[in-house]
Write a protein that binds this DNA or RNA. Structure first.
Lengths: 337, 337
DNA sequence: CTGAAAGCGCTTACAG
DNA sequence: CTGAAAGCGCTTACAG
């Protein structure tokens, strides 16, 4: 590999001057600069990133921890982050927590050891303790959370208003005439499954529909199979249910498969609203009414916040944490009247 | 940040000894080792990765370039790569080429400048020139290609036998009685769309069905919309078509949507086989007969090959490039009789 | 068993 | 406009 030293020897000048010429320092003569640049390109010189990192104490690399990569929403977020980072000259190391707190903790450690310039994270469902995240702050590494956040952790955040979106989804079911509305909720820990549940409950209350806890099903894996399983359970438990608000599209699609199997008419007998607007939801039958969650935008915004914080810290500006709330839309399709 | 020097000063010993103690060199007394380790953990010492990289000339980081992240097959591959890499202590920098040759080229350069220990790549559809890839070899960086490979580039590869899989898919259509079989093919450059086309043609030939080039449609974006568009075109052009082999599931799903719209009975009037086995394909109506492509396995295998090459180079072993061909399965569903 | 010293390849404050 | 020198924080061959 070619080094500054070799270019310097080749031209009989000092390493300092070579370095300055390549970095467009103003105090290098045009002639020297030209000569150095030509020689560098001739020798196919690439600055040694390891040495640059050591000197400048930054790697222009950030870390990203995400619960699951094979997932329409999250892969859209990743795409948003990576494309925005590339524009600003940053590379992204991606890790997958598999919804496990233990893995997530290890991965935070991996990234801190790697000395990334910042960390983006969406929490695992299993994460209920946040010491590993406060450790990030203690190491002076900027942190931005998105989608699945922890309220108590002090850092910038990008989210949607899950509660409001869930409220609107449930309200829509009420407005088209549903009286007995079930909810398939996510696990207990993540803030977004709590908020979606609260939005559901709030809508019922506002429209004077009695809350019936037996209509709320607590899911764990949030998988297609679970959707089928609880759909079956729902119609065994409740003959009179006429609407279901489901925490996430994949589960809703499993539920629809089960309802289809059992010959239940959607939306005539049962109205279904999902959450996330996976591409898939537009192509199944019946197509799924759902809340559109802007994954790509969320990724872009999360990186932008992180980038700003990295820059501000370098300039020793005081950091103020921001909370960005992105808009959602209820997309009406054939699974509701 | 705590350094070796600080630990050394704290204990009144040399940096050398501290370094050795932390790395379990045998020539350090047990007492010293214990003391050093305790102090290091007390001070929350983390080795400076930048300095380690510079000294050892490796970063335990690899680069990954993929055409599109929001894509069931590719995101499965990424998951396979990342999980396998993590097991071996490697981190993965992911970039997305967006099917663009120009971007891909730039990204190879980014990764070489970053001095990653190796590169994994699946080529963009737009890539027809391979200088950027030979440059990787010239920089002594191990390279492994997967899925969308270039035959002429000398490196290890992980693929499926696209031609054979396409042959079997087409053969299946023939065996269930199709006489006029169309093919929606991918763009001209990528090897896999060439091979799938050749497999289709070979099956026709082997079963004495005349090849009719007007039954072959050349797609560009490989999107849902293109699937709809060419499905419409197909039934305008050919009243007598009774089977279609489609290069990839997303396109097939678009086509099915259009056929459904037009009231064409699948599979009674028209049999459809896709390629890739996206999750979506199992939940649409009718569900799609398709070739299962093992994305997660491919990712794991690709990393393993890269890892072995990295190790072998360090030991100055001679490198022999391997070509691993993974098995595919034809998954029979409701879109074929 | 311990440590002084060289060196990885840069950047930059400073002197001239 | 040019360059000598220090230093980022490690690792390791070598001496004792």
């Amino acid at each position: 590999m070619v080094t500054l030293k070799q270019i310097a020897e080749e031209l009989g000048i000092s390493i300092t001057t070579v370095s300055k010429a390549l970095k467009d320092y103003p105090d290098v003569s045009k002639k020297t600069r030209k000569l150095v640049r030509e020689t560098a390109s001739l020798l196919n010189y690439k600055p040694n990133a390891f040495a640059v990192n050591l000197r400048t104490k930054e790697s222009k690399t950030i870390g990203l921890i995400i619960p699951e990569i094979v997932h329409h929403f999250f892969s859209s977020v990743i795409k948003g982050i990576i494309s925005q980072a590339e524009k600003k000259g940053y590379l992204v190391i991606t890790l997958q927590s598999n919804e496990s707190y233990e893995l997530e903790k290890k991965q935070i450690d991996l990234l801190l050891n790697k000395r990334v310039d910042g960390i983006l994270i969406s929490l695992a469902n299993g994460t209920g303790d946040f010491k590993h995240l406060t450790e990030v702050a203690e190491n002076d590494v900027p942190l931005v959370m998105f989608d699945k956040i922890a309220k108590v952790v002090k850092c910038s955040k990008v989210i949607i208003d899950d509660r409001k979106a869930a409220y609107k989804a449930t309200e829509y079911l009420i407005k088209i005439g549903c009286k007995r509305i079930a909810h398939f909720r996510g696990p207990l820990l993540p803030q977004n499954s709590i908020d979606r549940f609260l939005g559901y409950k709030e809508a019922l209350a506002n429209y004077n529909i009695a809350y019936d806890s037996s209509l709320v099903y607590l899911l764990d894996k949030m998988s297609f199979e679970e959707g089928k399983f609880f759909a079956k359970k729902l119609i065994e438990d409740h003959k009179d249910v006429d609407g279901v608000f489901i925490n996430t599209d994949l589960v809703a699609i499993g539920a629809i498969a089960e309802f289809n199997n059992q010959g239940i008419q959607i939306p005539e007998a049962l109205n279904i609203v999902g959450f996330s607007n996976w591409f898939m939801s537009s192509v199944i039958s019946p197509s799924l009414t759902t809340v559109d969650q802007p994954g790509f935008e969320m990724g872009k915004k999360a990186f932008k916040l992180l980038y700003k914080e990295i820059k501000d810290r370098k300039k020793n500006k005081t950091i103020t944490f921001k909370k960005v709330v992105l808009d959602t839309d209820l997309i009406l399709r054939d699974s509701t009247k």
